[in-house]
Each structure stands twice: as C-alpha cells, then as structure tokens.
Simulated scan of single mutants.
Amino acid sequence: MSETRHALTVGDGITISYSVFNGTDPAVVILHGLAGSSREFTPTARALSPRKVILIDQRGHGLSTRVPADTSRTAFVGDVVRVIEAESSQPVDLVGHSMGAHTAMLVAAAHPALVRRLVLLEGNEGNGSAEDHAALGDYFLSWEVPFSSRENARESLGDGPLAQAWVADLEEREDGLYPRFDADVLVRTISVVAVPRWMEWESITAPTLAVYADGGMFTENQKAEFVGRGRNVTRADLTEASHDAHLDAFEQWITVLRGFLTAT
C-alpha cells in the first residue's frame, strides 16, 4: 500500500498537507483530533487496505500551516472539502476523532453530497468551558521545549499511547525537538469547537457510526443524548479504552470501523 504526500493551498493562503494511501474507491478520509496529526492514523490507513485512504493534517497541526489566522469551524470544513474535491470524484467515507469528529460532522451537514458514511470517534455536538480551554493551553505551554532528544521528551511527557504519538511526531530543528502545533492556536481552535452544533448534527442523513470508549471524555448521558438526536446513527462502545482509542484499543477500533465501512 503506497503512500504519497500532497500539499494544497487554500483560499486564505494556508497550506494543507495530507497523505494518500493508494487503493480502491470510495476513499476513506480521516481527521485527527486537537494537538494530533495525520501520523496517528497511519496504522488505521494500512489496516483498511485495499481501500484508498486520505489522512489530513488539519490547519494548525502536523505539516500544515502551523499558525493560521483563521481557526473558525468554517475554515476547517472548507479545508476538508477542498481535499475531498481534489482527490475523489465520488462521495467518501469520512472519519474523525475528537475535534476531527466535530469537523467531520460539520462537513457532512454542510456538504451531504460529499459524504457516503460518517464515523465519529469520541466526538459530539461540542462542549467545554473557557476554564477547560485555558487549562489545556497552560498544559501545552508548560512543555519545556525544545526537547534535547526523544528520550528527553518521553521522560517529560510520559510513555502512554498519546504521549508516544506526540514524541514520534516532534519536529527536528537545529536547537532541538518541537511539537507540531502552537498552544495559542489550539486554544483558539477548541474554543469554537465547544459551541454546541445541534442543528447541524440533527440534519445529517448519512449512515453514521458513533464510537465511544469506556474511559473516554463523555458521560453516559452525553453519549445517549447525542446518539438519540441523530437521524441514522449506530453506536459502538470500546472497552478498556481511552479518548484516544485508535491508539490504545486499536484492534477493537479497526474491527468496528471495518465492519461499518463494509456494511451493505
């Protein structure tokens, strides 16, 4: 399964970087979460062979423009639409994790003709407080960068699955290793992700799979309300899994994902 890297310049001069894993249509497009990158989903892409898979670095993340001026939901949606239109002549299966799930939801609502099936891993209509966002920003600002080595980064960030993903994705510069995101951009981004978008969610008619982890970030009431207010939603629950279940419950994740994407 060969992988090629692409870059697309969108209307506000932002560069969106993405990888294409060659395969059969319809393509599967995958969107990572906040402070992540497309690299996290490389194992997922390979596990979906022989399907064509497109992994997008959303603006402010990965190899895409690090500090975009526009971090609105409209901008994120527009980036995904541009990539889909550039890489596929038919509707795609759109998959998103956390913030990426929110982006995927809004793409499916605004551009239903582009989305065949929708998969949301640990996503919902939007929530969170200003205090939560400030604490998140403080956490990322607390990183003592640059890290002198990946071992130094592991000692600082820990060796859990998410920390391992961060360490693997660090950018090498002359003076050390840096994260592929800016803390202030993350706070601006998540502040608008938090605004509830029930109208958009309730308008989606594409078959949708909502995937939750038992150790994730949502309460049972939140999960039940979100699924209950959707039009065409199936729920799957992963056990002994975190919010980043694609990393720490990979086999369960792939099983439910494959099953949904291949259902007739």
Rank of each mutant, 00 (worst) to 15 (best):
W166K: 01
P26V: 08
I14Q: 12
G11D: 14
G137D: 07
R231S: 15
T9I: 12
A213N: 02
R173N: 07
N22P: 00
A47F: 13
N221I: 12
L257F: 10
S19L: 13
S17R: 07
A224Q: 11
A249W: 09
Y212D: 05
A7C: 12
A113C: 02
V211P: 06
D79C: 08
R154W: 14
P68E: 01
F41G: 00
V256N: 01
T234G: 12
S191I: 01
G228V: 05
A206L: 09
R229S: 14
R116V: 07
V185P: 02
Q252C: 11
H133Q: 12
E125W: 07
V193K: 01
W198T: 09
N232D: 14
I14K: 02
R117Y: 09
P50G: 05
T234M: 12
F21D: 05
F260G: 05
T239E: 14
E155F: 13
G259T: 08
V211F: 11
G228Y: 04
M199V: 14
R150L: 10
S156K: 11
K52S: 05
L257E: 01
R51N: 03
R116N: 15
D248L: 11
E144M: 08
A210Q: 05
T4I: 15
I14A: 13
A163D: 04
V119T: 03
H243N: 08
L157N: 09
G33L: 03
P161R: 01
G137R: 03
I30C: 12
L121V: 11
R154T: 11
P112R: 08
L34N: 08
D12R: 04
G259F: 09
A163M: 06
W198Q: 09
P112M: 09
A210M: 12
T264D: 15
T255A: 15
A27V: 02
A130S: 14
A194S: 14
L238W: 13
P68M: 03
W166S: 02
E40S: 14
V211L: 13
L257P: 00
T264F: 08
D79M: 05
D25L: 13
E40Y: 02
D214A: 10
E220C: 00
D70R: 00
P43T: 04
I16D: 09
T9K: 11
F140Q: 06
Y139N: 10
D132Q: 15
A27H: 06
V256D: 08
V187E: 11
A183P: 13
A45I: 04
S98F: 06
V192I: 07
D138C: 12
A47Q: 07
L118F: 10
G160V: 01
